[in-house]
Design a protein around this nucleic acid. Structure first.
Lengths: 336, 336
DNA sequence: ATGAAAGCGCTAACAG
DNA sequence: CTGTTAGCGCTTTCAT
């Protein structure tokens, strides 16, 4: 493995000069630079980023802590799209991504800070962790630059990217109301996600704006899971035949509701309108296709990476990015 | 940031002893070890892997070169599942993954070897590159441990993981023949993928085994793209009304064929049977759902990581892993 | 059982 | 413009 020392020897200069020549410093004569470059190429040199990072105290890598990188979230291309977005932006800079493999067992052994410090990442992007995750406290307390996805926390080194979930949910429910629905249920996600609170708020606001009552018994918890939502809906829809529409805090849960409706012989959309949230790939392919609130997860990843790089380079004071949503009207909803 | 030097000072021992104590060497007294561990905890020490990697000349990271990490391959959860599989296995060891962001522009600047050497990854996994990619030559020539996915090349440091594509394709076509089809077309992928050759071979073998002729005009190139396959099928199906079945080298292309059939008012499966390959998520959700040859992409990723780690630790002589396929019969095929 | 010293490959003062 | 020197944090002989 060639080092700058080798180049120095062959080119007949000092290692310092080689370092400077290679890094394009101005204080090196054109002649020596050329020779250095030539020798470097001849010897097939590639720099050792490890050594460089060690001395410069920055590694040009950003750490990724994503929760959904496992078999079970295959149905849900959210993690993948986010990753693609991050990758897209990072590809434009010369940073690399390191994917921390955080099994839950491992997490108990190693703290967030340790993970980042050990690998000496310059910053981190965290997605899909629950609000009760111990990592979260560390993120805020540590001084490691970090961008959170869908978790509204900031500090001098921490920012976040999210979707306007309140408005998104409000628009979804609003659309149902505009379609003549008055008895609208909500299948929300679990309490350990900020987006659940926000989507609940959007649901509430829409009803209030239409002077409709908020009825607690029309709100259920589907845990963001297709299976749980299906089970819950089975009971829920039987107990509340007065419901003509259900708003779901995720498409996956909406899929569960669709299944439950089929089991109960409730026709969607004739007897029940269903609206989801996310606009995952499957939403447009299932039958009936799903009316949903679309969020741009690719862009969230992209913006997260962009924000982190800006924080890293001190190029921004705004640490919050909020993206919009779009209502996609498909076959699972109908006017009454 | 605490270093072993700090620990040494506080604990009143030398850095050597600290290093040995922390790394669980036997030649350090129980008493000193305890003190070292205690001090390390007090000072909230985390080791600097950069420094360690530099001196040990191994980084405990493996590099990932995947092609499908972009917006366009969202429909196709193959890359994601593979990634999940890799992540799953790696999570069990204490390696981390480095995702190389290789835009095509960047690739022209930096060679594969450079990429790996610069980041000092211990090994690499490469997925989704074409057979004419210049990286491939480098992989074989360099001595960097590497596992290729779906590219049958080996060297003392290179292995690969693949699916038995020949058998898979043969089974798919065999199934069509068993269902009474005699005029079976093939929409193959582009020539720059080994799997195309193999799936073509499987198609050919199945026909030969049934003493059916191979007719070149029944074979078309869909470039592994849904759109291209759709365009091709539009022409293909019109020109060859004698075809009662089409075997596609990927589900995405099969989806394209389904669309084309719809446009041409050809009923699937009544007038035309369609078989895909891959069993992507959408295959079971589209209507009609797709009969396909299922391959376990998650497991491919898992096995690739496993194989690489084995190669790295010199624990294996077999550098080839071939996985099986399964025929999933759904709604897009029918006996005649 | 412990320590001193060298060195991994690189950058960065500081001189000249 | 170039070289000398020191040092990033760690591991590893080689003594003791």
């Amino acid at each position: 493995m060639t080092t700058i020392k080798d180049i120095a020897r062959v080119a007949g200069v000092s290692v310092t000069t080689v370092s400077r020549g290679l890094n394009g410093y101005s204080d090196v004569s054109e002649k020596t630079r050329e020779k250095i470059l030539k020798v470097a190429k001849e010897l097939n040199y590639s720099p050792n980023t490890l050594a460089r990072s060690l001395v410069m105290n920055k590694s040009k890598t950003i750490g990724l802590l994503v929760s959904g990188l496992n078999k079970s979230s295959a149905k849900d291309n959210i993690t993948f799209e986010m990753l693609s977005g991050i990758n897209e932006f990072v590809g434009e800079c010369d940073y690399d991504l390191v994917l921390f493999s955080t099994t839950s067992t491992k997490q108990r052994e190693k703290t967030y800070t340790q993970l980042c410090k050990e690998r000496r990442v310059d910053g981190a992007i965290i997605q899909g962790i629950r609000t009760d995750d111990p990592y979260l406290k560390e993120v805020i307390e540590s001084d490691i630059p970090c961008v959170l996805i869908d978790i509204p926390l900031t500090s001098p080194t921490v920012g976040y990217v999210t979707t306007d979930n309140v408005l998104g949910a409000r628009n979804g429910v609003q659309y149902l109301i505009d379609s003549g629905h008055r008895n609208i249920g909500l299948i929300n996600g679990h309490d350990f996600a900020f987006v659940s609170q926000q989507r609940l708020q959007g649901y509430t606001e829409a009803l209030q704006m239409a002077n409709l009552p908020i009825r607690k018994e029309w709100i259920a918890n589907g845990e963001f899971s297709e299976e749980v939502a299906e089970q819950v809906a089975l009971k829920f829809l039987k107990e509340h035949p007065e419901l003509t529409a259900v708003f779901c805090a995720s498409d996956l849960m909406a899929l569960g509701v669709l299944k439950a409706a089929r089991t109960l012989n409730i026709n969607v959309p004739k007897e029940l309108s269903v609206v989801g949230f996310d606009d995952i790939m499957l939403a447009s392919y299932v039958s009936p296709s799903l009316t949903t609130i679309s969020q741009d997860t690719f862009r969230m990843g992209y913006e997260a990476a962009k924000l982190l790089l800006n924080i890293l380079e001190g190029k921004t004071d705004t640490h919050v990015v909020t993206l919009g949503t779009a209502l996609k009207i498909r076959e699972s909803t109908k006017s009454i």
